[in-house]
Amino acid sequence: MFRSLGRDAVSASRAIYLFATSIAGFCVWILGTEEAAAHVKWFCAYDAAGQPRGLENVLCQDFELLLGVALLWFFSGCVVERTSLGELMARSLNRFTENLELHTELMMRAVCGFFFVSLWAVGGIILTPELKTTSALVGPLQVAIAAGLLSRRTMPLSAAGIAVLFALAVRDYGTFHLADYPIFLGFAAYLALTGLQKDLFGVSPLDVVRYATAVTLMWASIEKWAYPEWSFPLLIEHPGITLGFESEFYMRAAGMVEFTLAFALAWTPLVRRIAAAMLLGMFISACFEFGKLDVIGHSAIIVVLVAIVCDTRQAASDYRSPWLAPAGLCAALTVTLFAYYVGHAAAFNTTIL
């Protein structure tokens, strides 16, 4: 009995500690986080076909506590959005970003052009640093994509070029590996729709790439739970990233933070703008920590996050009841975990549990 009470006391103490540190972490993000968000496959050895940690190990007590904290913060943000404080925050953001919003398309085209010219200059890369190629056609195609962005009329051709590169990567690395990067298809759709001045069944070009970015980051967060050992050499080399936490716990927490913020990108106007700002701080911090490779690799996602922060549109249909937020986050987490593990098992004949 006393042992049980002792374990309960320890669990309660850890929950309080997690809640307190989450508040501190929130303040750090708002002021400018130094936490890095590097893509581990670019810097460390990995085995995409290896056996991931079983779900019984992923869904541990720490995971449940972290999910509880995430649900609390997400629900609180949704409640605040419809209050006078939320309206004040939205107006403040609008004043800060109104000039950038007017140039969203130019900003997206310029950074996308920089991205593909950089890939061509580095050489031997299809879309991201770990997607290597020896094809002599990839470099000229990357330059052609960048050139097509100079005119709105040729933007659909650039979009087609991105789709071709994505197809080449799928051929060489498999569908499961490229499930990490639906943002490129979203970016291609954005360029094509913007160039043609059309929506996708009523969904604006910016919303298409926003949803693709959310899916990309939610999927990437699962790797932090399925393969935390990939990141351990990186954490040893850059110990400041862990903020003093043990590596195992840090990877669980980092995955939960990333998943929650990524899901928030698909939620209501103010919530997604705040989430984009927090993710933006994380990705920019990673650029300082990991150098030019990270700058190039994450430039596309950074400009999308800037565009989301600057997006002042507030359609009535965008708003949902705050009580739907916890259910939505849990449903998205369940579906993404299931899709990742089932997809991996189908692709590489691994086990789920």
Rank of each mutant, 00 (worst) to 15 (best):
C330Y: 00
M155Q: 14
Q51L: 03
L324D: 05
G6W: 10
P140D: 06
L18A: 12
V122Y: 09
K292V: 12
E130M: 14
T242F: 02
G186P: 02
F249V: 07
T33V: 15
G123H: 11
A327Y: 04
L119W: 14
A189R: 05
Y319A: 07
G240I: 01
N99E: 12
V209D: 05
R95S: 12
A339D: 05
T268F: 02
T213Q: 13
C330P: 00
V143A: 15
R3K: 14
P233V: 10
V80N: 03
V80S: 02
S92T: 13
L165R: 07
I308Q: 08
A160W: 07
S11D: 10
L279H: 07
G161P: 11
W42T: 10
T350P: 04
L127G: 12
F26G: 06
L131P: 02
V335D: 00
E81R: 06
A37V: 05
L305S: 08
L127P: 07
R320S: 07
R272E: 00
R7S: 13
F232P: 03
A110D: 13
G202Y: 06
L235V: 09
G77Q: 03
L191T: 08
F184L: 14
Y190G: 01
S247C: 02
T260S: 15
I183E: 03
F201A: 13
P326L: 09
G32Y: 05
F74M: 12
S76C: 15
V138Y: 08
S151N: 13
M218E: 12
Y190F: 15
F63T: 06
A325Q: 05
T260I: 04
C78G: 11
